[in-house]
Design a binder for these strands. Sequence first.
DNA 1: AAGCTTTGCAACCGCATCAGA
DNA 2: TTCTGATGCGGTTGCAAAGCT
Length: 258
Amino acid sequence: MGRSPCCDGEAGVKKGPWTPEEDKLLVDYIQEKGHGSWRHVPKLAGLNRCGQSCRPRWNNYLRPDIKRGRFTDDEEKLIIHLHSLLGNKWSSIATKLPGRTDNEIKNYWNTHLRKKLLGMGIDPITHRPRTDLSLLDGTPSSSCFRGCNGGQNGAGIDQSMLLQQCQWDGMNNLPALTSSTPVNGMDNVSGMFDGFGAGDGLSSTEFGGYGGESGSNVTVDAVVPARPMVANDQECNNNGGGGGAGMAAGANVMAELK
DNA sequence: AAGCTTTGCAACCGCATCAGA
DNA sequence: TTCTGATGCGGTTGCAAAGCT
């Protein structure tokens, strides 16, 4: 199918950062008329922009329910936890964080959380301990720790990390996991979140306030549409019965973050 | 103080998927 | 059933600010 033809052939369509005036035009128009078809929004709103530029601008920054500012510790933990379950499904993760957008979460992950996990010796892709030598030999200059030891976390290689490695080694014996398989313990999602909530002082109802576009509340037990996603997502196809490892993966990371 | 490097974020690009004709 | 337009989504890029030398 390819790219939408929305902006193709339209010379002179502005790109780049939005000005406050443009923001106001877009907000005023959408609040009055709704966005309808994004293709027609810029013209009707008097903007020299592409509809594909207007849509993310509204969804990511101008929507009134967007929460700005730093992520809280709980949000941080939840992102890590959800990422261990869902991988880079930023939109799915975003639906569990009231007022946060997928783009914001993605950026936060790439700039903060990924480094934090690396600093803890955890592979941010698999959420499992890194096993490369640069980690285990504790070389301060290794890429994994560059920028991490001096960071907020200050996590270095210590006994607890080595202990964690042993714990992971033990879990590697579980049948459903391979070294390259992202942790996707989808079959045990409910249990995972029960544990997460209990361990972090977050009850299931604490996630229920987000209406999102569906307008429905979300509880932890329903936080991940486990079955459909397993059915649709090839990453989940080789999970077998190994959800328990995923649960432990999440728990391990969360414990480390405390 | 100036130049360089790193970091963080906003925005764009293009593929995937959905929905309607 | 097929085609086409619209939208969703994730990856990547570019730039400004902050930090460092």
